[in-house]
């Protein structure tokens, strides 16, 4: 079947199969491999993407649900061409938030959605927002620190969002 969807601000007409997940659409059809596959049934959070700015698990979202929707993946965050990072990405680097990086795309996206809705989150609110993404390297405290720091940076108007 054919669907029309918007991925990272680009309108696309795609041929998908009914049993495709949104994760398969992104990774296998579009080659956007920044979104990771983990448990593949909605438990680990590695496949998190934003649908209409809200985080969802792409592995249990049918690809056909992308019809008419705006999808944001990690490839749509920051400006890749001239190496400008989104403040959330910059603060994650600065705060040594990750080691292996497998969960980082999802962490960036859930943080982005949180700060868009709530520019001044409490530590508890940040923890709650990140709770659906499992990290097995650094634990979570440095991610929390990085997101709180990014909130401060963004409030000062240094946003580089595209």
């Amino acid at each position: 079947m054919r669907i029309r969807t918007v991925v990272n601000n680009e309108t696309l007409d795609l041929e998908i199969s009914l049993s495709n997940s949104l994760l398969e659409l992104l990774r296998d059809i579009l080659g956007l491999t920044g979104t990771k596959k983990g448990c593949d049934f909605g438990g680990c959070g590695m496949c998190t993407v934003l649908v209409e700015d809200k985080p969802v698990f792409s592995c249990i979202t049918p690809a056909w649900r992308a019809e008419g929707k705006r999808i944001t993946t990690i490839e749509g965050v920051g400006i890749r061409d001239n190496h400008h990072l989104h403040p959330i990405q910059a603060e994650m680097l600065k705060n040594f938030a990750f080691q292996c990086g497998y969960c980082t795309p999802s962490m960036v996206l859930v943080a982005k959605s949180l700060l868009q809705e709530n520019p001044s989150p409490t530590e508890q609110e940040v923890k709650e927002a990140l709770s659906g993404v499992i990290c097995r390297c650094t634990g979570y405290s440095r991610y929390v620190k990085a997101v709180l720091a990014a909130a401060e940076t963004m409030k000062k108007g240094l946003e580089l969002d595209i």
Partner: peptide
């Protein structure tokens, strides 16, 4: 109901 991704879906 946790996590937020599930609440959104």
């Amino acid at each position: 109901i946790s996590p937020p991704q599930i609440r959104n879906m």
